[in-house]
C-alpha cells in the first residue's frame, strides 16, 4: 500500500467552497432570467436590469464595490490555487508508520532541557528539521549548554535526524 504523507489542508479548500457558492449564485441569476423571460414570474429579469445599467457613462457605486470585491477574491483564488499543501508531521525512523508534529518535538525538547541542571526555563522552536532550544540559565551555570544538548539528544533519540542548537541566556542575578 502506497500512502501519501500527512499534510495540512491545502489553501485552495476555502476558495473551492466559495467558488461553488458563487457558481450556485450565478446559476440562480440565469434561472431567474429564464423564469422572467418565459413569464413564470412577475418580476423583471435581474440579468436584464444589470445589462441595462451597462448604458451608463460611469459605473454605479454598487458596480465599483463589486469590481473591488472581484479583484480581491480573484487574487486570493489565484494565489491559493498555487500554494502547496504543507507537510504537517515529520517522519520518524523505525518500522512503524510514525509521524511526529513539530509542536510535539518542541514540547518534549523543552521538557528535556528544563530537566538539565541549572536551567530555569526552556522553549523549543522547530524549523524544518532544525530544532533550536532557547534556555534561560541560572546565574553561574554557563556550562549547562552541553548538558542541555545531551539531555535533548538523549530524549529525542530514535526520532530521526534532527539538527539541535541551543541558545542560552544567563538570568539576572
Amino acid at each position: 500500500m502506497k500512502l501519501r504523507d500527512p499534510r495540512r489542508g491545502p489553501a485552495a479548500a476555502w476558495p473551492a467552497v466559495l467558488g461553488a457558492l458563487l457558481l450556485l449564485a450565478f446559476a440562480a441569476l440565469l434561472a431567474q432570467h429564464a423564469a422572467a423571460a418565459r413569464g413564470w414570474t412577475a418580476n423583471a429579469s435581474w440579468l436584464g436590469e444589470a445589462l441595462a445599467a451597462l448604458d451608463d457613462r460611469r459605473p454605479s457605486a454598487w458596480a465599483l464595490a463589486g469590481g473591488a470585491a472581484a479583484a480581491l477574491l480573484g487574487l486570493w483564488f489565484l494565489i491559493a490555487a498555487f500554494l502547496p499543501a504543507r507537510r504537517s508531521h515529520l517522519h520518524a525512523d523505525g518500522p512503524g508508520d510514525l509521524w511526529i508534529a513539530p509542536a510535539a518535538i518542541e514540547a518534549v525538547a523543552a521538557d528535556a532541557a528544563e530537566r538539565a541542571p541549572g536551567v530555569l526555563h526552556a522553549a523549543g522552536e522547530m524549523r524544518r528539521r532544525r530544532l533550536r532550544v532557547k534556555a534561560l540559565l541560572a546565574p553561574g551555570h554557563e556550562a549547562a549548554v552541553a548538558d542541555i544538548l545531551e539531555s535533548v539528544g538523549a530524549r529525542l533519540g530514535g526520532l530521526g535526524e534532527l539538527e539541535v542548537s541551543v541558545q542560552a541566556k544567563e538570568g539576572a542575578r
Binding site: A12, A16, G67, A70, A71, G74, W76, F77, A85
Partner: peptide, 26 residues
C-alpha cells in the same frame, strides 16, 4: 479534498480578475 479544487480555483480567480478589470476600464 477533491482534485478539481486547484484548477477550478485558478480559473475562477482569472474570471473574477477579468471582471474586475472590466469594471476598472468602465
Amino acid at each position: 479534498r477533491p482534485a478539481i479544487d486547484r484548477p477550478a480555483a485558478a480559473v475562477l480567480g482569472l474570471l473574477l480578475l477579468a471582471a474586475a478589470a472590466a469594471v476598472l476600464d468602465w
